[in-house]
Nucleic acid binder design. Sequence first.
RNA 1: CGGGGUGUAGCGCAGUCCGGUUAGCGCACCUGGUUUGGGACCAGGGGGUCGCAGGUUCGAAUCCUGCCACCCCGACCA
Length: 491
Amino acid sequence: MAKGITSRSENYSQWYNDIVIKAGLADYSAVRGCMVIKPYGYAIWEKIQRQLDDMFKATGHQNAYFPLFIPKSFFSKEADHVEGFAKECAIVTHYRLKNDPAGKGVTVDEDAKLEEELIVRPTSETIIWNTYKGWIQSYRDLPILINQWANVVRWEMRTRLFLRTTEFLWQEGHTAHATREEAVEETLKMVNVYADFAQNWMGMPVLIGTKSENERFAGAIETYCIEALMQDGKALQAGTSHFLGQNFAKAFDVKYQTKEGVLDYVWATSWGVSTRLMGALVMAHSDDNGLVLPPKLAPTQVVFVPIYKTDEELSLISEKVQELKKQLEAKGITTHFDNRDTVKPGFKFAEYELKGYPVRIALGPKDMEKGTVEIARRDTLTKEFVPQDGVAEYVVNLLDEIQSNIYNKALKFREETTTIVDSYDEFKRILDEKPGFVLAHWDGTSETEERVKDETKATIRCIPLEGDNQPGTCIFTGKPSERRVVFARAY
RNA sequence: CGGGGUGUAGCGCAGUCCGGUUAGCGCACCUGGUUUGGGACCAGGGGGUCGCAGGUUCGAAUCCUGCCACCCCGACCA
């Protein structure tokens, strides 16, 4: 186990915090509930951003940017939306400071009170739909397919690094359509983009489904989500895509004229993923040695560590490393040569494991003699000697192998911790004894979900789009159930 | 907002119950040397308003009063 990291089995939360902090991803900040994302963490976020952005562009979306502040009056136009967010908003009430008369720094200038308070956006539906009103007159103006990369603020009671911070970075897509069908199609398209990203880039299997009424986004008709399972058996909502119907169009009076000349309200969607994905990445794959990154999202995929006693040895090794580096880079692989002479190789090995570099290549006098390198893979912690001639090919294949291995490992874990239950007693027992997804019948009512939550802390993570859709009877009430849904305790 | 806990060097902590030399330890940091195939070793060195404000006392990290901050567990949530 790495120095200073709490064991995963001993205390999962502590382990998670240790990895985030010690791998250099993020740290607590001076501001309550907010975190500082450090350069290494941000580098990973940039990889995530870049790939998602490409996927959004490929599905016809454009980026734009809307204001951080939302006038209070905008916010209160959609009733469910207000209800859902009212309790967690940061509000700007003044616009000026003055010197404290008591001589203690500065104080708020009460004369500079705003006529109308500004809400720091917890999400941007309202400001965006207020804007869209001015952009849309005819069916020719539709669809509008826009995404924004932004920060938002939600004043949560309790925060956790990446998973729930007061301020967080995310992207939010906001689209406007002429028909219900087109908007529904967009909602589904984007939840599938998220699933694609989670599985093929993060190496994290997800379930795609809809949310129950209790868990639905405030103001949405239907919320689609991707739901992942962490290594402690708790679920994490990793992304959501909302079909908003005409709720926001009605609230902000956004109408368009159809081909036939009739006025109708516009149909809307919104969808988002956040820096929470960083937390998911950590919790899905990491071990007691530190972070494990999927090669596709690792800022640096291969690190070279020289082993040497003399300057002559180092210069020979350096020459070889430069040669190999070029070969790898020619194949699109990102590399780093750590030739620091201030720390020993063993220290570097431990450090790169902690930081989750997928592949480490060590090169020492023995290798120079035999014409080999020592290649270590982070996911399995195994090492192998490989001829220098074939390194580039070997690493290309190895990175693919690692990418699919960590996905398969996570998938296997999910399958092993997913249980089908048919009675409430069994349901409760499984939640404690074998945490994970629990597939059970549910009568479809909020009351039942609420009662199950109160008694077991488990919620309906999603009503899956695929899989077993046979009817049955609710484990709690015995009433008819259309199909099994996915329960779990969640973050 | 309820319950619990903690504030002492950059980080992690001991010391507080029972007041008494110059406040200590590990890691990290700096200097010099030896090392380098899994987190090196030796020697020397720098770094502290003991969370803040008052009080008691010859004397306070330690006792008393008030305040503040943060963490953990709940409720709330991407």
